[in-house]
Simulated scan of single mutants.
Amino acid sequence: MRITLIDDSIPFDGSTPRKRSIGGAEKAFVGLSEAFSAKGYEVTAVNRCESYFELNGVRWLPFDAPRPPDCEILIAFRRPTLLQEIDDVDQRFLWLWGPLSFLNKAKNQVLLDRYMPTLIYLGETQRRSWKPNRIYQEAIIVPGVVDAYLDFESDQSEPPPVAITTTHPRHAMQEILRLWVDEIRPNNDHAQLHIYSTSLSRWRDTGEIGDDFDDLIPMVLKSEKCGVFIKSPMPDSIMANVYGAAKLHLYPAIKMEMYGNTLAESQATGLPALVRTTDRSVGAIAERVCDGQSGYIAPDDPAFVNLVAEILAESSGIYRSLHKDALALQRQRGWQVVATEFETLWS
């Protein structure tokens, strides 16, 4: 069977996640393409890659190149406009990512009605976030986690009191830093907070930062004396070791987030998660963390501060319990599982 996946976003290809950090959506596109190839399908990935080449059985084709002449399954990634890129196919899928309000635009409604694709949602939160005007075939298929995280071997020793964050600094970073400086660090002078951020790393190295970070930078500068370090996101093979060497993943609840890929990855290495909420609304993050087992969803800031202190404490029984359950519960979903779930939709 011949499968074509098509994306029209940024330049990347199958080699990119091995070289540098990329977004969860792009990583998913690579992961599913390679999983289909491993199952014996003839797979073509069409996107903004620079030139044609093959890697791990997947043929990468630049977006401006002629389309594959024979295609039985078309998986359009994110954009309904991509459903019309290949005419003669047996079945069309629209693999959705992120918030879905854009589907209400008239041009997208026309395309959905014309091609009647099977809609693939990331989870129940995303599915409930949009009400279509008609009935479509649909399925929830949760993304997979790459092998670097699933195969990470923990040495079972207790890590030092290091917490990490991986979300964009615009998402409550200032509030997390305030809690760290004022309430968390004063009670544990060995505790460290490592912020993995491309934008803050660029600011650290070049001094360049967007205007919307004006309020954040003074807090970042203040926090440097309180065990806070800016880190550059790295490829998966390195980030797996980063997660394995930390003790806690701090994560703000983000209203419009529909998956949370770095949280899924860190959970797979056994890293406990602590989610900060302000209104008890956690959205899709509740689908990533097993509350009370692989991490906690703190109902308010006092609970958040107390849990950070308890988990980062030396010889923390809470850490050991959360770590054990994360390894048991959160590392079964590789991309081969995802590909198998797609197969059931056309078999």
Rank of each mutant, 00 (worst) to 15 (best):
D8W: 00
D8F: 00
D8A: 07
D8C: 04
S9Q: 03
I10N: 04
I10C: 03
P11D: 13
F12M: 05
F12C: 05
F12H: 10
F12V: 04
F12D: 03
F12N: 06
D13C: 13
G14W: 06
G14Y: 07
G14V: 09
S15C: 10
S15D: 09
S15Y: 01
S15A: 12
T16A: 13
T16F: 06
T16M: 13
P17T: 00
P17L: 00
P17W: 00
P17C: 00
P17M: 00
P17Q: 01
R18G: 08
R18F: 12
R18M: 12
K19N: 14
K19I: 11
K19E: 15
R20C: 15
R20H: 12
R20G: 09
R20E: 15
S21F: 14
S21D: 10
S21K: 10
S21M: 14
I22S: 05
I22E: 05
I22V: 15
I22P: 12
G23S: 06
G24A: 00
G24V: 01
G24R: 00
G24S: 01
A25V: 03
E26L: 03
E26M: 03
E26D: 11
E26N: 09
K27N: 12
K27Y: 01
A28F: 01
A28Y: 02
A28C: 10
A28T: 10
A28H: 09
A28N: 11
A28W: 00
F29K: 02
F29H: 03
F29Q: 02
F29I: 05
V30M: 06
V30R: 05
V30P: 02
V30G: 03
V30E: 07
G31I: 02
G31H: 10
G31M: 08
L32K: 07
L32C: 05
L32D: 04
L32P: 04
S33E: 09
S33D: 08
E34I: 04
A35N: 10
A35K: 08
A35R: 10
F36E: 05
F36K: 08
F36H: 04
F36L: 08
S37D: 08
S37G: 11
S37V: 05
S37L: 07
S37E: 07
A38H: 14
A38M: 15
A38C: 13
K39T: 01
K39F: 15
G40A: 14
Y41N: 11
Y41S: 11
E42Q: 14
E42Y: 08
E42T: 14
E42P: 02
V43S: 10
T44R: 10
T44C: 14
A45H: 05
A45Q: 08
A45C: 14
V46F: 02
V46D: 10
V46T: 15
V46R: 09
N47Y: 00
C49A: 15
C49M: 05
C49S: 15
